[in-house]
Amino acid sequence: MRGVPFPFPAALRRGAALCGALGLVASLASCGWGGPDGDDGGRLPGAPTGITAAAGSATSVHVMWNAVTTDAGIGAYEVYRGATKVKEVPGSEHMVDVTRLRPSTTYAFTVRARDTEGRLGPPSREVRATTPEAAPADRAAPTRPSALKGRAVGSRAVQLSWSASTDDRGVVSYDVHQGGTKIHSVGGSQTAAVVTGLRPGTRYVFTVRARDAADNVSPAGTAVRLTTPGRDAGGATAPTGFRVTSRAADGAYHLDLSWVPPRTDGVITEYQVHLDGRPATSLVFGGNAPRDRATYSFYVGRESGVRHRVRLRAKLPDGTWGGFSAERTVTTGAGR
């Protein structure tokens, strides 16, 4: 999922500087950019576009960018403050809060994409953000944003707007949440945003919170529920090649699962397993989440001859759950 300030800028900058933007004097080849392909013959990821940076508080800046698409898939994004790498996020995420900054200071940020085969692409264009002055001994949170409204803008985006919050020292930013996940942040002078990267025919729930310079966060305003038009090809978001076998170990039975993750613009890191029609367990992979075939095993009891129905689904980059895999039936002690 991707959120951008509203209204959109009149034009997007193109042609981000590469080695020169980092102040390097080495050859282009030393940047890993000897042409369209890397030394191993694979094509490098492109430079992230649409990068923005906005102060979230006196000690943090919210950085966002558009997803990079590559045949190998993006394994991670590296976020730099000046020439220093300060954050790394999974390829399924396109935003990050850079924290532990100094108040009243201007910072410059760039982002680079690294594919699942370890190739690092060129940096994005540089963006700058200035943190506000610190507000000592400020424990009062802003008032909650009110009058949140929204409408679908096509089948993959929504436009949100709300009434400004108040604070004794001033609102620095607004955090936009989809469900329970923060997906975007805009400056305290803005009361609107466009959230993109959504799925057609999907129901979403959005809320907004206000934040001041001391990182006090308001309660969430009233939620707005929106459904994007069109039809969602749920099958395209479901894990495929799903297999289940039963295995005995230490006097108990386990189910061994394997599947192929759905193809998305980022790496899938979270799944939910349903057993006999109910959620049974969740699993979260780290930065090296599998893209080709994933495996997982979990305990189901000590009794042999018990028949189980199993299926699973993935949490997609837009924060919603994808379609379910095919349901498989397995009996403990009977193998497949």
Rank of each mutant, 00 (worst) to 15 (best):
I268M: 14
T269M: 04
T269S: 14
E270I: 00
Y271I: 14
Y271L: 10
Q272M: 13
Q272P: 02
Q272V: 08
Q272Y: 02
V273E: 07
V273H: 06
H274M: 11
H274T: 09
H274N: 11
L275C: 10
L275M: 14
L275R: 15
D276Q: 07
D276S: 08
D276W: 09
G277R: 12
G277S: 11
R278G: 03
R278F: 05
T281S: 09
T281H: 08
S282I: 13
S282H: 14
L283C: 15
L283I: 14
F285L: 06
F285Q: 06
F285T: 01
G286Q: 08
G287T: 05
N288Q: 11
N288V: 05
A289P: 04
A289V: 02
P290F: 04
R291E: 06
R291P: 05
R291C: 02
D292Y: 10
D292F: 06
A294S: 10
Y296V: 09
F298K: 02
Y299N: 13
Y299F: 14
V300H: 06
V300I: 07
V300W: 06
G301L: 12
G301K: 12
G301Y: 13
R302T: 15
R302P: 07
S304H: 01
S304F: 00
G305W: 07
G305N: 04
R307D: 05
R307W: 03
R309T: 13
V310G: 02
V310S: 00
V310E: 00
R311G: 04
L312Y: 11
L312F: 12
A314V: 08
A314S: 15
L316C: 02
